[in-house]
Structure formats: structure tokens, C-alpha cells
């Protein structure tokens, strides 16, 4: 792609964001939701890439859907993602704006934290995960979030807009050993480390059965927990209404690994537990897993 084209696309993207911000300021969340519909239809009509990327997941979630229904599925997925982005902008721009959140399994999280072994909180690219992270402020121990650059930029942008203070400390996963050293130290202090369990972007991995086929998921979180003795809890957020969402603890366990040559198999077992939870989540909320990567061909 040429430099001029790249610059033009960046300017168009910035213009798009600013139009949405203007709508949010003038017409609120509802106004921006209305604008979202024609924007997404236009996007889907002109971008082949979005159909290709969304199909990796949607074809597995809805194997019996033909081209027309798949087009509509893509619309619903992108529309739902767009609503999450609008919510994020709305929360940032309107100081008094709030989403109502229900935490299911909060007591279990408190019990796990109280054990003092630290807690690996596994989450995924679902719902409004920044809001979900803000919701666990009440755990009484510092929260760290292991993130790669792109997620870090989005999270910082969101919390900069919101009130300037992120509810967690960011550990960069693109440094030496993928942030594992800082994460180990944090767990050693009894703190919480949140990790995205659904996107493999390098480092150790495990193969799991997910939506009817073998997929590759990251496995560093289980190794981290096994080495430090920390428990793992799976926490996934879902939007349930225009201004409401739930955050649910889907599962918790203490990963362990045996012999070195069995390590890959052991880590796979724990990654499988995560895959089962995520599969349960996407059965309930098919249009809230914002995955545009082909995990099944990695």
C-alpha cells in the first residue's frame, strides 16, 4: 500500500471517529447507535476482507448457514462490536454515563484472592472487556493486565477518555519472555494478573477442540499459574441491554503440570477448560466474541 493511500485511510478513520464523537455529544448513545447501522451496511457492502475474517468464526458457529444468513451473521457480529465501541466512546465523553453491570461469581473471586497465592484472571475479546476490567476494582489487591501493544493502546485510550486512571497496571507482553517475569512477580505478591486466553500471538500454545475443530490457544497463563501455585478464574463479560452487561465467572481451577515431556499435554488440558467455557459463552452470545482471526489454521 502506498504512503499516500495509507495517510488517506488514516485521515478517513480519524474523520469517522470524530463524526461518531460528534454524534455522541449531540445525540447521545442512541444517536450514535442509529448512525452505526448505515455505516456498517456500507462497510459490509464494500469490504470483502471483513466477510473473510468474520467467516473463520461464524462458519464454525453456524455451520448450517448459507451465504445470505452468513452475511446477516457478519452484520450482527460487526454491529455488536460497533455498539461496544460506541459504548466505550460514550462512557469516555459523558462523565455521568454509566453501564449497569452484574458480577456473577464475585464471591468466588474474593475467596480465590483471599488465599494470597495471586490470581490469574483469564478473559477474552468478548463484550466490553475494558468495562469488565474496571468492574473488578473491588478485589482489594492490585490488578495487572498482560497485554500486547494494540490492546494496550485501546485500553489506555479508553481510560484516558474516561477519567485518566486505569484500574490496572499494564504488563507489556512484547518484551523479554512475553511479560512472564513481571507477571510471576505480581502473582508472588498476591496480586491479580488478567490475560486474554483466546488469541495466540506467539509464545507457548496448546491445541484444543473448539467449535468442532482443532484450534490453537495461548498456554502461558496455565504455566504461570502452575509454577506459582496461583488459581485461574475465567471471567467473561456480555452486553445484555443498551446500558447493561453481566460479568460471569465461568470456571476456576488450579493448573498443574507433571513431567517435562508431558508439559504440552498438561497445558492443553487446562487450555481445553478455557475453550469449553468460551464455547459455552459463544453458544449463549454468538455475536459477542469479536474474533476476526483464524485460530483453526494457525
Amino acid at each position: 500500500m502506498g504512503k499516500v493511500k495509507r495517510t488517506l485511510l488514516r485521515l478517513l478513520e480519524a474523520l469517522g471517529h470524530n463524526i461518531f464523537y460528534l454524534f455522541l455529544l449531540l445525540f447521545g448513545q442512541g444517536g450514535a447507535y442509529l448512525l452505526l447501522k448505515p455505516v456498517i451496511v456500507t462497510y459490509l457492502l464494500f469490504s470483502r476482507k471483513i466477510h473473510r475474517n468474520a467467516a473463520c468464526y461464524l462458519k464454525r458457529r453456524f455451520p448450517d448457514h448459507g451465504p445470505v444468513r452468513l452475511w446477516l451473521d457478519t452484520y450482527r457480529l460487526v454491529h455488536s462490536f460497533g455498539q461496544v465501541l460506541v459504548d466505550r466512546g460514550w462512557l469516555g465523553l459523558r462523565r455521568k454515563a454509566q453501564l449497569r453491570g452484574d458480577l456473577i461469581g464475585g464471591d468466588r473471586l474474593l475467596e480465590l484472592v483471599a488465599e494470597g497465592k495471586g490470581l490469574v484472571l483469564l478473559t477474552a475479546h468478548v463484550g466490553n472487556w475494558q468495562t469488565a476490567l474496571a468492574h473488578i476494582r473491588g478485589l482489594a489487591v492490585p490488578i495487572n493486565s498482560l497485554m500486547h501493544y494494540e490492546e494496550e493502546a485501546v485500553a489506555k485510550h479508553y481510560f484516558d477518555l474516561r477519567d485518566g486512571t486505569a484500574p490496572f497496571k499494564i504488563i507489556k507482553s512484547d518484551g523479554f519472555m512475553g511479560g512472564m517475569i513481571e507477571s510471576t512477580a505480581a502473582l508472588g505478591r498476591g496480586e491479580v494478573v488478567t490475560i486474554m486466553g483466546d488469541r495466540y500471538a506467539g509464545g507457548p500454545w496448546a491445541e484444543v477442540e473448539f467449535l468442532g475443530a482443532t484450534a490453537r490457544l495461548p498456554s502461558a497463563a496455565y504455566s504461570l499459574a502452575a509454577a506459582t501455585g496461583a488459581p485461574v478464574a475465567i471471567l467473561l463479560a456480555a452486553k445484555t441491554g443498551r446500558r447493561s452487561y453481566t460479568i460471569k465467572v465461568w470456571d476456576d481451577f488450579y493448573p498443574a503440570t507433571g513431567e517435562r515431556h508431558d508439559r504440552q499435554r498438561d497445558l492443553g488440558r487446562w487450555a481445553d477448560r478455557f475453550a469449553k467455557s468460551l464455547e459455552g459463552y459463544v453458544r449463549q452470545n454468538p455475536y459477542q466474541w469479536y474474533n476476526f482471526f483464524d485460530l483453526w489454521s494457525q
Binding site: M180, I181, E182, T184, A185, G188, P204, S223, A227
Partner: peptide, 23 residues
């Protein structure tokens, strides 16, 4: 590998009471 790095951080802490804090 990186999985061993995690264990090594824990082992150094456990055996020598020395904490490795960052990358």
C-alpha cells in the same frame, strides 16, 4: 523457554529469597 523462565523466577525466589521483578 519462556515456560521455564517462569519456573526459574519462582525457583530463585524459593531457594535464595531473591525476587526478579521485571524483564
Amino acid at each position: 523457554d519462556s515456560l521455564d523462565a517462569v519456573e526459574l523466577v519462582v525457583l530463585v525466589q524459593k531457594h535464595f529469597d531473591v525476587q526478579i521483578e521485571d524483564m
